[in-house]
Design a protein around this nucleic acid. Structure first.
Lengths: 199, 199
DNA sequence: CCCAAATTAGCACGGTTGTGCTAGTTTGAT
DNA sequence: ATCAAACTAGCACAACCGTGCTAATTTGGG
């Protein structure tokens, strides 16, 4: 039984084509036909892998989150805690062309969740993941070594998360180099202030 | 020359129908037909007022921003500066069913901006308006009376803005009463800390 | 070599879309 | 009463959509 193509690679290829379509024309332009075209494949081939538009969208969202997750997990842990936390948070905010595109696609998929309910669970779990990650980072800055973060770490983690998300939104509007610098400075301050309050 | 209908009222009526469609089925479900249907009008009537789908979407977005603007402008200025600022910021975050729906529609329209470029200018100007408002609020807390806000007020205004936007996003995911309390407490703290640093 | 499975290709259906367009219907000022 | 403007209603077109379905083509294990 032949398996000429690598199914996972093919799925990724199609998801990336879907991202490009979203970036160029918005999520409403995502259809089995436009994406197949963008990927240079026949509609039949796409539908052999993603029988419905919904499955295509869901996988596109999953892969995006997975990629971001992996990128952050692969961050070198060397340096001070403050440096590491800043490096992580920088990956949650559109500082590069890469993360900026990611954010753009994310907004589109979140908005589409009203029309495609299957996306809701995904967006919620992604948000939750980031939330607990931020709390873990806050606990790290506080030099807590307990398994469960303190109430204080939770509060600061949530705040850091809100600040990062807010800045992310702002940078989608204007992202001149001075805006980027201001944003990173704000994050640095926040991180410093969390670390400064450690017990 | 008869003017049987109040044109502005009709436009508002249709925009509200569009909001309902967005909330129920997402922005991709907004079409001249679905919205006319939702408003209980014939397609021809809608198109007499909004010849194209784009014009309908743009006006729907404009009216939403205008309404929010007016709601905030009508806030009583009595009480301490801190109370007033909190009241204003509370209107930027989905604390009520009203503002929650507003936020939902807003996200949809922002996402649609990729497909309908006419929406981009709108979203940018709305964002800018809120940005300067936040800076003005920060200056108020600092008891600055100069026309142009200090560098300090700008910094704190931006921070307040980012925090509010981030919290707004979070409350779209989970908004139990405890989440609301936590969010308002965070804002209160931020406002207090801005006021505490005044010259 | 050969066959069955994997893959590609594409037709067809009913439905929806935006928009150009025309034709009625109402209405208030004259 | 009349007439032009404002409004309502709806047809028609070409383009798109998702998806069920069949048929051709490729391919590797036997």
């Amino acid at each position: 039984m032949p398996s000429r193509i690598n199914r996972e690679a093919r799925k990724a290829e199609l998801a990336e084509a879907a991202w490009r379509v979203i970036l160029r024309s918005g999520v409403s332009a995502v259809s089995v036909r436009t994406v197949a075209d963008e990927a240079g494949l026949a509609v039949g081939s796409l539908r052999h892998v993603f029988p419905t538009r919904t499955e295509l969208l869901v996988f596109s969202a999953e892969l995006m989150m997975e990629r971001a997750n992996e990128r952050i997990r692969n961050l070198p842990q060397q340096g001070s805690a403050e440096e590491y936390v800043l490096a992580v948070v920088k990956n949650l905010v559109p500082f590069t062309e890469q993360t900026r595109a990611e954010m753009d696609v994310n907004i589109a998929l979140v908005a589409e969740a009203t029309a495609v309910p299957e996306l809701k669970a995904l967006r919620d779990s992604a948000h939750e993941q980031i939330a607990v990650a931020c709390i873990r980072l806050a606990a790290m800055l506080r030099e807590e070594h307990s398994e469960t973060p303190s109430e204080d770490a939770i509060r600061h983690g949530r705040r850091l998360h809100a600040l990062a998300d807010g800045l992310a939104l702002h940078l989608m509007h204007r992202a001149e180099s001075e805006d980027l610098e201001r944003a990173v400075e704000l994050l640095r301050e926040e991180i410093r202030s969390i670390a400064a309050g450690r017990a």
